[in-house]
Write a protein that binds this DNA or RNA. Structure first.
Lengths: 238, 238
DNA sequence: ATACGTTAAATGTATGACATATAACGTTTC
DNA sequence: GAAACGTTATATGTCATACATTTAACGTAT
């Protein structure tokens, strides 16, 4: 008898948000497309401008659209990228939901797998890129560039694993470890001296899946020794 | 000579958003706390209500606060959870940025690791929960509950790995595979007959890390055979 | 003690006005 | 003809005010 469902008083702005989101997800608007202007949306949804604007603001905050001002402006559907995952990981770390140690351990488990897959799928073009990156590693440039050079190999391998989910996760972890550790110890050479990647690259280029996995694991263990104790100090100096 | 920096015309609502976000991240407001009311924020930031509201809307869309209406209402800082990652994964899949196959493969690589870690950290209480879940698995209830029962073991193991990042990733994958495959084939018994988890549980409870890893991998391979071909059919029937 | 109405405090919505950003077009100037 | 400049049109961004709605808490009558 008690089958009455509660009346859900959904807010108008949320309703508009939902409908627009669905339209994007269903492909009715795809990346680069412009959503109808505020004025048109007001008419179609028969709501006030306030409501439309808040809905679009939410879409923007969720990373589904970018808003451009001006004559040819409007809300344009964004090419969805895996950056969202990275940014969320950042949030989680800074809100104390993940310890630095957990991130490092996760990377220790995942990146060897990625390296193995990279070895499995390595093409001559990939090999060329890897060797190039490896040669450039010892260059010393300005601060942020050095970090980029030093982790380039890791990003390349992530791109080679042929699985966009693993690529995204791996890149998030690499980026997170990098940004956290360099915040604490800006001297790149101390936390990651150049030339630590030779054996990994050799194995990957040889297509040696197990070898690449093993080499990456060994490298990360070495690296983590250098980073040991960083988290406490970081948390202290906050 | 050309050292002039471009004037960044940051929108007022974004500025308010950023300041509030920083306040949350820095711990000035923590989970459960109430942000100042719109009226107070208007005064403190010296902006219009529109701006304040849009900023708060963005915080809500990013999952940082929940907004409650009414006398004791306001914007309350949300306990940040790993659900965000899951929701991102959902978005990415539905926007076609990940194939079902990629998700399954990622799970195939990650979940055995998680199972191994679970074995490493298994306590008697954990063992009890696992055995309970295993016993309940063959019960047949209403539709959504059955799916829950059948995947309970996986969620339990995810919680046991002692690494919140891996827990979150693993759960996202489990949830995603579950929801996608059941959308295609609602008959739970066909895609995942009960009783497939015995060997995994035995190994985990025995603390046999390698064994648990191996058992999980075998289970997933079996499972994926059943799911083979789902994606194409799914994409077609869309 | 329960039921009910009142009140107060918050967010939600509507509307109109004006500010600002930006591309496109036209016009002047050389 | 091309570059510089002003004009205009069309977006979004901001402000201000009024009113609607939701919700908890308090008071009051039954």
């Amino acid at each position: 008898m008690n089958n009455f469902k509660p009346i859900k008083q959904i807010k108008a702005s949320d309703e508009v948000f939902n409908q627009l989101r669905e339209a994007i997800f269903s492909g009715r608007f795809s990346a680069g497309d412009k959503l109808p202007s505020e004025r048109e949306l007001i008419e179609k949804f028969a709501v006030s401008r306030t409501v439309v604007r808040e809905a679009i603001k939410s879409l923007e905050a969720r990373g589904l659209v970018v808003i451009k001002q001006g004559a040819t402006g409007g809300a344009f559907v964004k090419e969805m990228t895996f950056d969202r995952l990275s940014s969320d990981c950042n949030d989680l770390f800074f809100l104390g939901k993940m310890s630095f140690n957990e991130i490092c351990q996760a990377r220790l488990h995942i990146e060897p797998i990625v390296a193995g897959l990279a070895a499995k799928h390595c093409t001559p073009e990939h090999a060329k890129l890897l060797l190039e990156a490896n040669a450039n590693e010892s260059l010393t440039l300005e601060y942020p560039e050095t970090v980029m050079l030093r982790s380039k190999i890791h990003y390349l391998l992530a791109d080679m694993c042929n699985n966009r989910f693993l690529t995204a996760i791996d890149k998030s972890l690499i980026q997170l470890v990098g940004s956290i550790s360099s915040k604490f110890q800006p001297d790149t050479d101390k936390i990651h001296p150049p030339g630590m990647h030779h054996s990994i690259i050799d194995a990957v280029i040889a297509g040696d899946e197990a070898g690449a996995e093993q080499a990456m694991r060994a490298h990360l263990l070495d690296f983590l020794v250098l980073l040991d104790g960083i988290e406490e100090e970081y948390r202290h100096t906050q």
